[in-house]
Nucleic acid binder design. Structure first.
Lengths: 227, 227, 227, 227
DNA sequence: GATGAATGAGAGTTCATTCAT
DNA sequence: TATGAATGAACTCTCATTCAT
């Protein structure tokens, strides 16, 4: 999982041979476009504004992207790519307990998801535009969600195997553990808060609850599953 | 069902000559408009399509709503209203344990949020358009989120007071308990799945984990809070 | 010239037999319509506003007038009619000098034209809409301008014949004598003045100049026409 | 021609790269728009027709003018500007009698007003639309009427001072002398004549009358003002 | 006759896209 | 490559006209 990922960029760069001159313009446009799309959504975003933000002429966009839709897709793919890099950054270090691993993983995912404006922008675009662009969601799922979920599952399983965690049904729905991060992101997206909310306290409270729910208790426990 | 809420409708209905004649058209338009807006977003939705869906002429919309923006706001308010009614439906019954209460509350919220297409539509609109319509988010927060969060908090506190639950920091962030519902809703919104995902199993797994995390253990517990 | 005119109303009244009940509604509409048309012009006037002003339902207008254009024509004809009555009101009295007659005639025309809001409204409509409704101008010319011009001419000729006035070329362009009245009307129409302007002083100054120009001088005058 | 006026154009031209490139389109639009507005009035004029007349696409208009209203205002201002130039064209030449000056001035104003289709178009627009655009009338008054009136007054006063003209009250209402020009313009505007009317004869007759009314008679004259 | 909700053609305006420079 | 003026399809909104009540 150690991601060589960045080696296969989704957006194909052009003129790979020699200088990647164009790529600069391209990135400039992608970046401006992301800001516009993230702020206003696909339909409401104006290519005029993208161009102005990128300090280029409107026509120039068309030298790099066939049309608005292609630009949009490229923007989302590009951002998913960069999110992926954040997400999968690997700690190198001594092996530790499953609990430790889980804390670390979720903290990292939380940072990548809730504390990262980019990620929130992507989330907004996916929620808003997945009706019109279903394939982007597939990319997102394949590149982000599934690896992320798999990582969580593997830690849970490791904990169970080591007798550190109870065997619980969450193992089959590992995305549940990422729910608070998503909630936080949505919350910040929707509720442009005056008092933005204490993300660290929130995470801390969540982890406390989660670990308590997972950790194997010494004493016999019978039937916390009702019925 | 105990809701007095329906007594103060946000969109003022006009009671013409006894019966609420106009309101019928109004509801018809609101309903068609919701479907269009939820499917395409504010900008991409076409009033032409709204009219066609409602089987009326385009101009008729303007007899009931000043313009697209006003229609949009009315749509969201109307839906928040109806969501509210779902959310606050009250079980009348014998008092039960905090655990029982919590299960019931979260199950209800889960049903209202994740299993309800309306609610997902509202969520999509809020995420997509909160930039352009910040006041709608305020309504949503006031009408839905805050009551919902308060309800969760009160159950947690009741459980703590009764010695049924551990004292945990989640009490300060009760929205965490609703996170899996939101995640499920977002999931379904974004990932228009071929195999849609087992909502009941998901909820069950979550509740198992949650209750385990909250329930007071008989045996001595020392420091599940790390550090 | 003593006008039997009002006996042949241009706008045909309906249900002449028995009660002229409808005519009341008709007049009500004509009156409201005139105000709207005069204030905003044909295109910009809204039948909605006409109806509101007349305190009737919009559809009712169509019971009395086939459509907007017909209503407009009826309005202008109606007003020309009433202007005509003002214009042609006859002084009964002892015969007087041509100068006296001329003063009186022009004073009356001035009052009818410049001091009368109705007349200004008609003028505005004629100027604004004569492109679209050329026939109205013909009515106006036939009913108002030609009689008015003829009256002026006849007084000038009477004065010349009586040796009271010089023989002047104005006799061939009698409308020149009405020019100051028209100018005053246009002035008031266009320049919605803070200090509205002294109409009586204006008329007085004009008549002084005019009479001086027409009156036969005792001394021999040769060739005030240059060259 | 003595006009510095053209040095401060009201509509700001954009001097792009040396020559005034854009201005050409702008003038083209202004000109087509004037014809449409003058023929049909503000409301009835269609931007489609303006575009067609200018042989451009409808959207192009919006590259030069924010909207219809702004275009309209620009059109009127532009035309007032050009009228002004006509109006104020200065004869350079030997000093002559007041009578001569007055003839010349009024002849010029007559030509600018009555014989000039532009001027008639402006007049029509002012009369028709001054209700909706009161500020345009102010511009017209300031730029055209007041200078024109002042010019007439100054000639009258010069004639009085030189003993050439009687002292008359018209000196206080100099616009009276311009009335025949306005009447002629209105006449042509409203009465789209088959036999258009002999403008030169008309002017001639007017000047004859006017000069006779102003000129000092040798013999004693007492009290041509009655009463 | 009177009403006013409903209609839909047609207007102003926007903006993704093109293309001569 | 880069530009930005030009395009025109498509949108929102208006309002004269109709018609069931």
């Amino acid at each position: 999982m150690g991601l060589t990922v960045s080696a296969k960029p989704i957006g194909r760069a052009r003129h790979v041979a020699g200088r990647t001159r164009t790529s600069e313009r391209r990135r400039q446009i992608l970046s401006s476009a992301f800001e516009e799309f993230a702020a206003k959504g696909y339909e409401a975003a104006r290519l005029d504004d993208v161009a102005r933000r990128a300090q280029i002429a409107k026509g120039t966009i068309y030298l790099h992207f066939k049309n608005k839709e292609v630009l949009f897709r490229a923007v989302v793919r590009d951002r998913i790519q960069s999110l992926l890099e954040k997400f999968c950054a690997r700690r190198k270090g001594v092996p530790v307990s499953a609990e430790e691993l889980l804390r670390e993983l979720l903290t990292r995912q939380f940072a990548a998801m809730a504390k990262n404006e980019n990620a929130r922008g992507i989330l907004r675009l996916l929620v808003a535009e997945s009706g019109k662009f279903p394939r982007l969601a597939s990319v997102y799922r394949r590149e982000i969600i599934e690896p992320g979920t798999a990582a969580i599952r593997s830690v849970i399983e490791k904990g169970s195997a080591a007798g550190e965690f109870e065997k619980r049904k969450v193992a089959e729905f590992p995305q549940i553990l990422a729910a608070p991060a998503v909630l936080a992101a949505v919350w910040m997206l929707v509720l442009s808060d005056p008092k933005p909310f204490d993300l660290d306290g929130y995470l801390d409270a969540y982890l406390e609850l989660l670990i308590a729910g997972l950790r194997k208790t010494r004493a016999r426990e019978d039937g916390e599953t009702r019925k």
